[in-house]
């Protein structure tokens, strides 16, 4: 099963709009979702036979955190979820994809996104007594992005 069919299934199940889907360079499709839609979306994708989660990218745009779930199956598929910076919280994928554990732990440490249901929330990269906040968050939160 290929990415296009999975995208169609996603659109059908979650009733997405055309504007939520855009294509990016190097065979990449991006789909914008809300935080609640993530788990059903990943379930749909797994059902469609796309098992490979490449990574989870987190980035800060203005005062929002953007989580990007990069899937791959001959072509790329990115699920994009936007969260508030303060008290950012999202469901963990580790029950569906155990391989997501390290990516979620890293994002949790570096950006302070709380993953609900993360199997092993102990620190991965930073020391146990780390107290200097979330190091990957932008120092200048007012820096805005000029979208092309």
């Amino acid at each position: 099963m290929n990415i296009d069919l999975a995208v169609n299934a996603l659109v059908r199940q979650l009733e997405l709009e055309k504007s939520d889907i855009c294509s990016k360079p190097i065979n990449e499709t991006e789909i914008k979702l809300s935080a609640q839609q993530l788990i059903p979306a990943v379930e749909t994708i797994l059902d469609a036979g796309i098992w490979h989660l490449s990574t989870i990218t987190c980035l800060q745009v203005a005062d929002e955190l953007v989580l990007l779930y990069h899937f791959w199956h001959s072509k790329g598929l990115t699920l994009c979820v936007t969260l508030e910076t303060e008290h950012a919280q999202i469901n963990s994928l580790t029950t569906l994809i155990p391989g997501a554990e390290f990516y979620e732990r890293e994002v949790r440490e570096m950006f302070g996104v709380e993953f609900v249901g993360l199997t092993n929330p102990s620190p991965l990269l930073l020391p146990d007594d780390w107290q200097s906040g979330f190091s990957m968050r932008s120092e200048k939160p007012n820096k805005t992005e000029s979208e092309a």
Binding site: K24, P25, I26, E28, S54, T55, H70, W72, G76, T78, E145, S146, E147, A148
Partner: peptide, 16 residues
């Protein structure tokens, strides 16, 4: 401005 995901096959597997 824009975003891109680039993948390649390193000796140990996929690099993203």
């Amino acid at each position: 401005a824009g975003e891109v995901v680039s993948r390649s096959e390193a000796p140990r597997g996929e690099v993203v």
